[in-house]
Amino acid sequence: MTFQPETERQHTISVLVDNEAGVLARVIGLFSGRGYNIESLTVAEVDPRESLSRITIVTSGTPMIIEQIKAQLERLVPVHNVNDLTLSGPHVERELALVKVRGTGDGRVESLRIADIFRARVLDSSTESFVFEIVGDTGKLDAFINLMEPLGLVDVARTGVAAIARGPGEI
């Protein structure tokens, strides 16, 4: 193996863990303690019978750092497996955002038109505001939020990335 230490790349890593107290703190503590980046992190129980949760982490680093992150994650006792979706083949990523926009008149109409183009849904409406729900990859959400900025963007809540491999195989 040879490394080119200068090339940083974004990786989406899927980690299957025991759903127990403190497991998220272990993962986050690992990243902060060793100085790794977390760009996005989602966690929820995915197998109630076996009490397993999936943590999806988007991080970036050189190949050496990414390899370290995975090895360090694998070392944690409650971790069952670690999968680098970016390296292991094609996968899909989705994120959901709730976007509140305040405005009246033309701005209000424009926000609704853009929402239609992005296939965002209106979850809540008042005479001077909308709450949009938008689902997509991170880039699409960023683009939508940027367009809403001049139209009266108030608040954004994002879930972070959930990801899964394409095809019939397990992650």
């Binding site: 193996m1 040879t2 490394f3 050496m64 390899e67 370290q68 090895a71 360090q72 694998e74 070392r75």
Partner: peptide, 15 residues
């Protein structure tokens, strides 16, 4: 025995 020790500080040819 610890995979995280390999390639941590120094690039390894055979780990």
């Amino acid at each position: 025995i610890d995979p995280s020790s390999i390639n941590k500080n120094v690039a390894i040819d055979i780990g």
